[in-house]
């Protein structure tokens, strides 16, 4: 396995980990932030796959604005979640 492939697998595994954490953690603020991390990992993966425009957009939208929207909402409703 070349270094790039290893990097690829590394990101893929962490993507799944981030997704699971974002969904399992009880604090919605943490969930939102982890979701931002998930998006950022996704953006790295896409950049590595050669989809630079998509990666750029995901960095701006997924990791940036989406996370901000989520956090804004979490602040205005309650922070803890039952699951």
């Amino acid at each position: 396995m070349s270094g790039l492939e290893l990097f690829n697998v590394f990101i893929l595994v962490f993507l799944v980990v981030a997704a699971v954490i974002a969904l399992r953690v009880k604090d919605l603020l943490i969930a939102s932030v982890v979701f931002g991390i998930y998006s950022f990992l996704m953006c790295l993966l896409w950049a590595e796959m050669g989809a630079v425009d998509v990666a750029f957009t995901e960095a701006a939208v997924g990791a940036g604005v989406s996370a901000v929207f989520l956090i804004a909402t979490v602040f205005n409703v309650k922070r803890d979640s039952s699951d």
């Binding site: 425009d53 990666a55 701006a60 604005v65």
Partner: peptide, 17 residues
């Protein structure tokens, strides 16, 4: 280069945010 109206717009909007 990578980029365009959508990405630029989001970044611009982010500055206001």
């Amino acid at each position: 280069s990578p980029g365009g109206g959508f990405q630029g717009g989001v970044i611009m909007g982010a500055s206001f945010i």
